[in-house]
């Protein structure tokens, strides 16, 4: 199975101003493996992009990776304003 942490980091790090602030948290629900992407607050906009185009592109690529089992992967971009979404 693809190492999603590495994949997400490799996609995101070169696109941000503060690569060292990129972190990924995990959580698992009964249907999804959730990956929470945390970046420096100034980089959140960069990662989401105009109308979410960048975020959508990243998600498409991440979801295209193979997953073993019947759970699916979900990428959540944490913006500092809304922690519990």
């Amino acid at each position: 199975m693809t190492n999603f942490d590495e994949l997400i980091k490799k996609i995101v790090k070169p696109l941000v101003e503060y690569p060292e602030d990129v972190a990924i948290d995990h959580s698992e629900s009964d249907r999804f493996y959730e990956y929470h992407l945390v970046t420096n607050p100034t980089d959140v906009g960069r990662i989401i992009g105009k109308k979410g185009h960048v975020a959508q592109t990243i998600r498409t690529i991440v979801y295209s990776a193979r997953v073993s089992g019947d759970k699916r992967v979900r990428l959540i971009i944490d913006d500092s304003k809304n922690k519990n979404s």
Binding site: T2, E6, I61, A65, R66
Partner: peptide, 8 residues
């Protein structure tokens, strides 16, 4: 390159 490699 690393990205597509991570995708297998």
């Amino acid at each position: 390159k690393p990205i597509v490699e991570e995708l297998g």
